[in-house]
């Protein structure tokens, strides 16, 4: 039995600081998950569909910002759920917007959670804690078909 591959975090955000923040938290929590980054929705889709060098490591969890150039978060979600390969991806929205409109629109696309980047470190850390739990579920569920095939 091969060791479980760690869950990759795909951060979709145009702000470098946001990515830095995630890296810091991950580091602080001593997680070893690889972190990959896409600058906007279009870039994220390209990377997810790519099977070559740039392919995103499976399994993965998407951490999605809403306000982005080219393709924003909601547009990305819409296209993601249309794609047969990617439709079941686990997505967390991490954004500064606490607008009920945005929250409702995001949940319409079957997201796993909505995290407001409002409070500083504490909330963020708690959110990452929650993410942690999720990563285990994601990797476990991915494990099942692999083991049955083996």
């Amino acid at each position: 039995m091969t060791p479980k591959p760690p869950v990759t975090f795909l951060v979709v955000d145009d702000d470098d600081v946001a990515v830095m923040a995630i890296r810091r938290v991950v580091k602080k929590l001593r997680l070893t998950n690889p972190i990959e980054r896409a600058v906007d929705g279009r870039d994220a889709l390209d990377r997810l569909r790519d099977t070559g060098e740039e392919a995103v490591g499976r399994p993965f969890i998407i951490l999605l910002d809403l306000n982005m150039p080219r393709m924003n978060g909601l547009e990305f979600l819409a296209e993601l759920r249309e794609d047969i390969e990617l439709a079941n991806s686990v997505v967390f929205v991490m954004t500064t917007s606490d607008s009920p409109r945005d929250i409702a629109a995001a949940y319409d696309h079957k997201i796993a959670g909505y995290i407001v980047k409002e409070s500083a470190y504490d909330t963020f850390a708690a959110a990452m804690d929650m993410l942690q739990t999720y990563t285990e579920i994601v990797s476990f569920s991915l494990d099942l078909p692999a083991s049955s095939a083996a």
Partner: peptide, 9 residues
């Protein structure tokens, strides 16, 4: 919102 993100950063 647009002001908030950089402020957050």
């Amino acid at each position: 919102h647009d002001l908030r993100s950089p402020l957050r950063a």
